[in-house]
Design a binder for these strands. Structure first.
Length: 175
DNA sequence: CCCTGATTCGC
DNA sequence: GCGAATCAGG
């Protein structure tokens, strides 16, 4: 069963919270996953939430999300998509990934640019790092492979061939 | 070039 | 209802 995409009550609720919290459509889309910013904007309008920052003067404020929303969002994201990249793809052909990739570069983990959910962009690796219930929660943030949500390093972990995965190795813990 | 939301309109 | 394409702008 595919993850129930589409505007489920859950997703609409999250969309509402984030939009009202001042988040941009693209960031909300990135957090929801499976939708583009256009989809988010379209939905926002249909819900009648558009033109939030209206007034005598616009409030281009970067709108720093409340700590609560930030954490709740991180949790929601992990619960709906991050926890089982392996399981999700387990029944798919799995993209053309050289299971036995050519000699890897000396680079191991791109921990150098960890980012918070607020700075996560479409082109950034969404591999979760740390405990989503804490403010220290971050995402890998490295350059993701075009068309995929993870960087080369994490994609290897996420899209392991079923044969090499066995039943253990879980998600190799979020490191 | 990066980004923002708004609108249109075929599906 | 949905969202890609497009527009208009920062």
């Amino acid at each position: 069963m595919e993850a129930g995409l589409g505007w489920t009550d859950d997703r609409v609720a999250l969309l509402r919270r984030l939009w009202e919290d001042g988040q941009s459509a693209s960031k909300i889309a990135a957090q929801l996953g499976g939708v583009t910013r256009n989809a988010v904007i379209g939905k926002v309008h249909r819900l009648g939430l558009a033109g939030r920052a209206r007034g005598a003067d616009e409030a281009p404020a970067a709108a720093t999300p409340s700590k609560i929303v930030e954490i709740e969002t991180a949790i929601a994201v992990v619960e709906t998509q991050a926890p089982e990249p392996v399981a999700i793809l387990s029944h798919r052909p799995a993209p053309e990934f050289p299971a036995a990739a050519p000699a890897k570069e000396p680079v191991a983990i791109p921990v150098s640019q960890r980012v918070t959910i607020m700075d996560l962009r479409e082109s950034m690796c969404r591999w979760p790092l740390g405990d989503p219930t804490t403010p220290e929660f971050r995402f890998c943030g490295a350059r993701s492979i075009t068309g995929l949500p993870y960087c080369t390093h994490h994609a290897e972990i996420a899209y392991q061939p079923a044969t090499e995965r066995k039943r253990d190795r879980r998600v190799a813990s979020f490191r």
